[in-house]
Structures are given as C-alpha cells and as structure tokens.
C-alpha cells in the first residue's frame, strides 16, 4: 500500500513543479509531512478528549453528544492546515516545487486521513456511541 502511495503518478498529484530530477523526493517528503501531521493531530485530539473525559468531575460531563464529537473532529482540521502551511512556508523545496496547488492537495489529503483516523478510532474505541 505504501509503495502504491510512492508511485510516481500518485506523488505527481501533490507537487506542481516536476522540473528537478529529484521531485519525487520532495513530493514524498511533503506526503510524509501531511501523514505525520494528520496522525499527530488525530492522536492529540483523541488525547484531548480522553483527558477531558477523565477530568470530568460530574458523570454526565463524561458523556459527549454526537454533535460535540463532530465539532471536536472539525476543530482538529484547523491546526492541521496551519501546521502544514507553516511547514510548507518554511521549507524552501516545498515552497518552490510543491507550490500552492500542492499545499492545497496535501492539506486535503491530511484532512481526509485525519477524518478516517478519527472515525475509525471512535469506532474501535468505547466511544463509538458518541459518534454513530
């Protein structure tokens, strides 16, 4: 699966400028950055929710409604964007070769991955009833 992701056609999707010979390396780095940020964001959001639940002093505050759960998930997508934007802006190769189009596509990919992780995470955890 990972190899599939690293295929040129797939990598090409995330980069705008493919003139340099090693554009695959840059695209791969950008992709890995998006994956890491998405996974970290998902982990942090899960950790935040677990902390809030364990810190709840009243039993009913431990329980999250579906709306609260989706709201937290949606809030999580903002830091993903800002972190990716910061990394993209501060890394010369990303700025020059990934360019704006790659930033958008990378962010969308990270969001997608993050959402998948959050949904699966809830489904396999005791909190699944707070989502579905």
């Amino acid at each position: 699966m990972f190899l599939l992701f690293l295929q040129d056609d797939f990598l090409r999707f995330f980069i705008e400028n493919i003139e340099p010979d090693n554009w695959q390396e840059t695209a791969t780095s950008w992709l890995i950055t998006a994956v890491v940020v998405a996974v970290l964001a998902a982990g942090l959001v899960f950790a935040y929710k677990a902390l809030r639940k364990s810190m709840a002093d009243i039993a009913k505050r431990k329980i999250w409604t579906r709306g609260q759960t989706w709201l937290l998930i949606l809030i999580g997508i903002f830091p993903i964007f800002f972190v990716l934007l910061a990394v993209w802006y501060m890394t010369r190769d990303f700025l020059n070769y990934v360019q704006f189009g790659g930033l958008v596509k990378g962010t969308l990919f990270a969001w997608f991955l993050y959402l998948i992780l959050m949904v699966i995470g809830h489904l396999v955890s005791p909190w699944r009833r707070e989502l579905i």
Binding site: K60, I63, R129
Partner: peptide, 15 residues
C-alpha cells in the same frame, strides 16, 4: 438533573 436522558446510548459506560 443528572441522568443524561437525551443521550442514553452514549452513556451506557457511565450510567
């Protein structure tokens, strides 16, 4: 006041 009547499904672990 304390039983989450509107969210019984999500409360099975705590109530």
């Amino acid at each position: 006041q304390q039983i989450p009547w509107q969210n019984v499904r999500a409360s099975v672990r705590d109530f």
